[in-house]
C-alpha cells in the first residue's frame, strides 16, 4: 500500500466538502476519480499533499502519517507530484527554469546537476527543443507537459493529476494523455481527476465515482462504465461520456 486515506473530512466554514473519504492506492496503480463538478474530487487531491488542511481523518503515505503534527511537509510534498488544471507554470521563468527551481531549492542540487535532470525530464515529455521558451510562448499542451516534467523531476512516488486536460483545446488533449500513458507503462502510481471517460476506461486500473463529498462507488473501469451497482453512478456515466 503506497497511500491510504481514511475517514478524511474537509470543511470550509460551515460547509463540509469531504464527508469521510476512504481510499487505498497500491504501488503502480492508476486510479481515476470521476464525478460531477463540486463533488470534492479536487479537494481530495489537494488534501493528499496537504495543500488543503483536512479537518479530520488520516492519510498514510509510504508508511508515514501526513496529518501528524511536525511532519516535514516539504520533504513529503516533493515525493508527491502534482499537476494542476491551469498548469500554474511560473510565468517569469523559462520551461527549464520552471523544472529547475525545486531541484535547486528543495533538493539543493548544483546548477549543473539540476540542469541535467531538468533537461532529461523535459526530453521525457518531448519538449527538449523548448527548454528556453517562456510559458506564454508555449501552447497549452506544451505548458501542461512542462508542468508534468516539473513534478516528475523530483522523482515522486505518486503523481496527482487535477483535471490535467480540462483547460486544453480539444486537439491538444491527446499529447498530454500520451504522457500519462507512458507514465503508466513506466509503473508510476497515479491518481487522476478527469472528465476524459474514454481515456479513463482504457487507462484506469480502478475508477472512483464521487458525489457530494463522498465516494459513491469504486471498481474496475468495466464495472463502473458498463454495469455500475449504484443508480447515481449509472446516471452520471450515462450522461457524461457516451
Amino acid at each position: 500500500m503506497l497511500m491510504s486515506v481514511s475517514g478524511l473530512r474537509l470543511s470550509y466554514g460551515a460547509t463540509e466538502v469531504l464527508k469521510g473519504i476512504d481510499l487505498e492506492v497500491d504501488h503502480g496503480e492508476t486510479i481515476f476519480v470521476i464525478g460531477p463538478s463540486g463533488s470534492g474530487k479536487s479537494s481530495l487531491l489537494r488534501c493528499c499533499n496537504r495543500l488543503e488542511e483536512p479537518s479530520a481523518g488520516s492519510i498514510v503515505f509510504d508508511g508515514q502519517e501526513l496529518l501528524a503534527k511536525g511532519v516535514d511537509l516539504n520533504q513529503i510534498r516533493r515525493r508527491i507530484g502534482m499537476v494542476f488544471q491551469s498548469f500554474n507554470l511560473y510565468p517569469h521563468m523559462t520551461a527549464l527554469g520552471n523544472v529547475r527551481l525545486a531541484l535547486r531549492r528543495v533538493l539543493k542540487l548544483s546548477r549543473d546537476e539540476a540542469d541535467a535532470v531538468a533537461k532529461a525530464q523535459l526530453d521525457r515529455v518531448g519538449l527538449s527543443s523548448y527548454i528556453s521558451q517562456y510559458p506564454s510562448q508555449l501552447s497549452g499542451g506544451q505548458q501542461q507537459r512542462v508542468a508534468i516534467a516539473r513534478a516528475l523531476a523530483l522523482e515522486p512516488r505518486i503523481m496527482l493529476f487535477d483535471e490535467p486536460t480540462s483547460a486544453l483545446d480539444p486537439e491538444l488533449v491527446s499529447e498530454v494523455l500520451g504522457v500519462l500513458s507512458e507514465l503508466k507503462l513506466d509503473g508510476m502510481t497515479m491518481v487522476v481527476v478527469s472528465h476524459e471517460m474514454r481515456f479513463a476506461r482504457s487507462a484506469a486500473d480502478r475508477v472512483v465515482f464521487m458525489a457530494d463529498g463522498q465516494i459513491i462507488e469504486t471498481g474496475p473501469p468495466e464495472q463502473i462504465f458498463t454495469s455500475p451497482e449504484v443508480a447515481r453512478t449509472r446516471d452520471f456515466v450515462a450522461q457524461a461520456a457516451f
Binding site: 516539504n74 502534482m82 494542476f84 500554474n88 511560473y90 527551481l101 525545486a102 531549492r105 528543495v106 523530483l154
Partner: peptide, 24 residues
Amino acid sequence: GQRLAARSTGLGFLQTMVYVILPQ
C-alpha cells in the same frame, strides 16, 4: 495557483515567496 504549484514541489513558505511570488 502559483503558490499551490510551488508548495506542491516542496518549496517552503519563504522560498515560494522569494522565488515565485515576489518576482511576479
